[in-house]
């Protein structure tokens, strides 16, 4: 298999200015590298502030990267400019978490879903565009006649379908899904997950699926990357990660997920002490060291590198492997 997207040392820092003298740098994404294989779903998990959404927006160049490379079909996205960038962007789409914020309330569905066509295929006639929009709406489980309606006339799940239609209208190869079901009820989430799986099969799509929900990620991903405070701490195939989590943070994360079987609740849980540190002021050494039950002096001094401990299983921890 070949990588459709290869991230190498992707880094995004934000500078925060307070007053005249104080400047702080938030290392939101710090040297993240992983591959996304064509046709696969790669999961990206982590808690708030872990940098997972910033990483997605940086890859799409919606944020300017501080450093690194994002190689998409052999081209480094971070070196593209102007028209070249627009041309490559047509192959990439994004769906956001909140379908109440991501759809313009004063536009009809026709204009919302049709906008990418106007940008990327400006030579289409109105009729051609209209028929593509109608076809796309039916493909995501809406009605062709919905082109006339406004976002407020739809439920949350239907709005997310509109957002998916907008992302897919220009037939991209790669879709970033940033918490696409987190705002939805369980029964609605089931429908959207099934739709995403159907569309992936039908169009041969590659997904980068961002979520904090471990049940969802387990269901949909082939491979999972775990982030903590801007760092990639573990990366493995889905079964491997759930059966043999190695990084103490991944283990705590999996252990914190409530069991769905009440008969299992007696099991020993690995509860973390304390809160995640301020991303603008992470601890020295390993960023997880302030909450890690295994941390020692080395951990508090030196940042652990990401190393391969098994074929395809990468971990950044002084206490694992090495």
């Amino acid at each position: 298999m070949t990588a459709l997207l290869s991230l190498r040392d992707v880094t995004k820092y934000f500078e925060i200015k307070r007053g005249v003298f104080e400047r702080r740098v938030v290392k939101a994404v710090d040297g993240v590298s992983f591959d996304v294989e064509e046709g696969q779903t790669v999961g990206l998990v982590g808690e708030s502030g872990s940098g997972k959404s910033t990483l997605a927006l940086t890859v799409l160049r919606l944020y300017e990267p501080t450093r690194g490379q994002a190689i998409f079909e052999g081209v480094n996205l971070f070196e593209l400019k102007g028209r070249e960038l627009t041309r490559v962007r047509r192959k990439m789409g994004i769906v956001f978490q909140d379908p109440y914020l991501s759809l313009n309330p004063v536009k009809r569905v026709r204009d919302i879903v049709g906008l990418p066509l106007k940008v990327h295929m400006p030579s289409l006639s109105f009729e051609e565009r209209e028929s593509m929009i109608r076809e796309m709406l039916e493909q995501v489980g809406l009605r062709a006649a919905d082109v006339e309606r406004f976002p407020h006339e739809f439920s949350g799940g239907q709005r997310q379908r509109i957002a998916i239609a907008r992302a897919l209208i220009v037939k991209p190869k790669f879709l970033i899904l940033d918490e696409p079901t987190s705002a939805l009820d369980l029964s609605v989430q089931a429908k959207i997950l099934n739709l995403l799986l159907d569309l992936q099969r039908e169009f041969g799509l590659t997904y980068l699926f961002i979520t904090h929900d471990m049940n969802v990620i387990k269901h949909i991903s082939d491979r999972i990357n775990v982030m903590y405070l801007g760092k990639l701490v573990e990366s493995a195939d889905t079964e491997e990660l759930f059966e043999r989590p190695l990084h103490p943070y991944t283990r705590a994360l999996l252990s914190s997920v409530p069991t769905l079987d009440p008969r299992q609740r007696g099991r020993k849980k690995m509860l973390l002490r304390g809160d995640p540190p301020d991303p603008a002021n992470p601890p020295p050494g390993c960023r997880f060291s302030s909450r890690c039950p295994l941390a020692d002096d080395l951990c508090r001094r030196e940042e652990p590198p990401l190393v391969q401990v098994e074929p395809g299983h990468w971990v950044a921890c002084h206490k694992v492997g090495g």
């Binding site: 029964s187 989430q189 089931a190 049940n215 387990k218 269901h219 949909i220």
Partner: peptide, 16 residues
């Protein structure tokens, strides 16, 4: 049934 991740990976989640 609508909880994902219980059955086979990438299988269909039961819808209501």
């Amino acid at each position: 049934g609508a909880i994902p991740g219980r059955g086979g990976r990438k299988g269909r989640v039961t819808e209501i």
